[in-house]
Amino acid sequence: MVSPELSSAIAEFGEPRGYLAAASIGLPPRRAVEALTADLAAWAAADRDPQGYDPVIAATRASYADLVNVPASSVAIGSQSSVLTSLVAAAVPEGAEVLLVDGDFSSIEFPFLQRPGVRVRAVPLEELADAVTDETWIVVFSLVQSATGRVADTAAILEAAQRHGAYTFCDTTQAAGVLPVDASPFDVTVCHAYKWLCAPRGVAFLTVSERMLPLLTPTQAGWYAGDDVWSSCYGPAMNLAHDARRFDVSPAWQAWIGAEQSIGLFAGLDIDEVWRRASGLGDALCDALGVPQQHQAIVTWPDPTGADLARLTAAGIRASGRAGRVRAAFHLWNDESDVAAVVAAVR
């Protein structure tokens, strides 16, 4: 049985049969489209001003904070995962070790690889917890791997990091909105909201723990990082926010109009119910294809020539290919008919 809340949320997306590409780009709920359309009309009618977007930003930040179980004061806003990750990469001490996952998404790896004087080590996801040592300054990984959909063993990683005194950095871009996310145990999390949270591209979040906050330098500080935003438009006097807002990047206003609606929608759902639905469809597809169940919302299988992806595309099914594998991503709008359509296309 689907709860009334989830049923109502599903209805926001119409009938996107065959859309299995939330891991690449989410779909906007009806309320986000309506809000964006109204905002564009107001802008065209000269009925918009920058200050009018402030309540939208505040509401979206609060919804995201609720979704990932941290206070809003721990949440900074930005536009891209790599930009927010760069703040953390800049804080790594000279000679310190950064432990990465082999094959993880480049936006959380390249900023660390660009740091001179930092030792970077990459290991397979299943070896990550065991690879943490006393030399490790920070462990960097995605909660859900982009290429394979594999879910990290966060309990083991957190335990190992605590035992060795390492900081933790978790990218939740492929998780938030479909898999329950608790950002509070991590020192840093980043999330770009245009995938499973179904927001417009250009809306990203950084969460920072109390112990990590003083280690980060707001090198990208601008007027929106000010304690009083509208009194911070001109320098050189600088009075930045005392909490995570000091890392804010000024928002792309229209994107946040849509994000307020999308993230507010997911913040009001039982995400565990969303995960059971999505991963259950994933397992149903595995059964139908005769491959071991993956217990994931993202189901992948080998497709080195791209033949299966081409068959799906020809059948009107939107999926994706990554690292020589087909990637079929089930979200709340999908149902059993999508499983049947995939099987019919590839068989």
Rank of each mutant, 00 (worst) to 15 (best):
V139F: 01
L128N: 03
P28W: 12
A147P: 02
L143C: 00
A59H: 07
T60I: 00
I77F: 01
L27A: 06
L67I: 00
D47Q: 14
V144Y: 06
E94A: 14
L125Y: 02
V140N: 01
A131D: 08
F110D: 15
A91M: 10
N69Q: 14
R115T: 01
P50T: 06
S82N: 12
L87F: 13
V139Y: 04
P93W: 02
T136W: 09
V33C: 06
T148G: 10
I25K: 12
A76W: 00
L67F: 06
A122Q: 09
A59N: 08
P16A: 08
V139A: 07
R121Y: 04
R48K: 13
V123T: 08
I57T: 03
S81Q: 14
G95A: 05
V139R: 05
A44N: 12
D49P: 02
V101E: 05
L99R: 04
V144D: 02
P124H: 06
R119M: 09
A72W: 04
S86R: 12
D102Q: 15
D66G: 10
S74R: 15
I57H: 10
L36Q: 10
A42D: 15
P71D: 13
D39T: 10
A76G: 15
E94C: 05
S107P: 05
R30A: 13
A91K: 00
G52V: 08
S107W: 09
V56D: 07
D47T: 01
G18L: 06
D66T: 12
A62L: 08
V83W: 09
Q114F: 11
A46Q: 14
L36C: 05
A22L: 10
W137R: 04
L113R: 15
L40R: 13
R121N: 06
L99P: 03
E97H: 02
E127T: 11
S81W: 02
V98F: 00
E34R: 13
L99F: 04
A42N: 11
P71C: 00
A59Q: 10
V139M: 01
L36T: 03
P29Q: 07
L125C: 02
A90P: 04
V83S: 13
S107M: 13
T85H: 03
L128Q: 03
R31Y: 01
A21M: 11
P111T: 11
D39Q: 14
Q145Y: 05
G26C: 07
S74G: 08
R121T: 15
A76M: 05
A44G: 05
R48G: 10
R121H: 09
V92G: 08
L125D: 11
R119K: 14
P124F: 01
A72R: 09
Y64E: 03
T60F: 04
V56I: 15
A91Y: 06
